[in-house]
């Protein structure tokens, strides 16, 4: 176990635990907008910054979502220095995405009453990259990527772009987006995926052999089949999840248990 001090409290956590998780496990809150436990830290919102001192580290500010806890670390999550930085970041967030509910709530929590800063163009997307990471690393499709409108600078992310040819229409990005700039909507036999309010992809849905309800895209079924085939398994892709569960719950359950054990 790793022993560290967070806000004057001695805590012990498993090796490899991040400071953010260590704080949370011990009932201490560090605000975040772009952190999801199941995903690699995206380090985008920077609200989770903490002040850290250690055996070999002079007092320094680090983001806690990607800082691995180590023995003897002294962490302060709400020191005056941190509060000042966090307030400024929140003010910047408020300038950039004034209509976002999560930002508004945090601003209120941090007693920010006036809007000090203004930007020309507000934009709800904070370029956290959760959608891109999920599409590439969890789904294995890589349809989403960052893009820029200029070439000759160090800029790598200005907006998110969708490669229609690669997208299978699974909707994971829309489900994970913390600010709702990606939306997925099923209308009859069609699924529409919109990005920044513009429909960027429409896909045909397939009906359930059993009940006739439209339930997913052919691309998702193909992806699933290909993945299961790697383990020598097949999937009855003709049925929607509800009908499939009723008909034969065993094989899929067995598979998920198996992979759960090996993972």
């Amino acid at each position: 176990m790793i022993q560290l001090i967070i806000n004057d409290t001695q805590v012990s956590v498993d090796p490899g635990t991040t400071v953010l998780e260590a704080a949370r496990q011990n009932g201490m809150t560090i605000p975040t907008l772009c952190y999801l436990k199941a995903m690699r830290p995206n380090q985008a919102c920077r609200l989770c910054v903490v002040e850290v001192e250690g055996p070999n580290v002079a007092s320094t500010v680090f983001s806690s979502c990607d800082l691995i806890a180590s023995d003897g670390l002294v962490v302060r999550t709400h020191s005056s220095r941190i509060l000042k930085i966090r307030r400024t970041i929140l003010e910047l967030l408020l300038a950039s995405m004034p209509d976002n509910k999560a930002v508004q709530a945090l601003a209120e929590e941090y007693s920010i009453t006036t809007k000090r800063f203004n930007v020309e163009k507000s934009d709800d997307c904070m370029l956290c990259g959760i959608c891109i990471q999920a599409c590439r690393e969890k789904i294995g499709v890589s349809a989403l990527s960052f893009a820029t409108s200029v070439a000759e600078t160090a800029k790598v992310a200005e907006f998110v772009r969708l490669d229609k040819e690669r997208c299978v229409g699974c909707g994971t990005c829309a489900n994970l987006c913390p600010v709702g700039v990606i939306q997925v909507e099923d209308k009859g036999s069609e699924r529409a995926l919109s990005l920044y309010g513009i429909v960027v992809n429409t896909l045909e849905l397939i009906p359930c052999d059993n009940c006739g309800a439209y339930f997913t895209t052919g691309g998702v079924v193909d992806l699933l089949k290909a993945r299961l085939a790697k383990d020598g398994l097949d999937v009855d892709a003709g049925n929607c999840p509800n009908c499939a569960r009723e008909k034969n719950p065993a094989p899929l359950t067995a598979h998920s248990t198996q992979t759960g054990e090996t993972a």
Partner: peptide, 14 residues
């Protein structure tokens, strides 16, 4: 601003 990578907030907007 023009060369900020664009991913983290304080630099891009700040």
């Amino acid at each position: 601003h023009e060369n900020s990578c664009g991913q983290c907030f304080p630099c891009r907007i700040g």
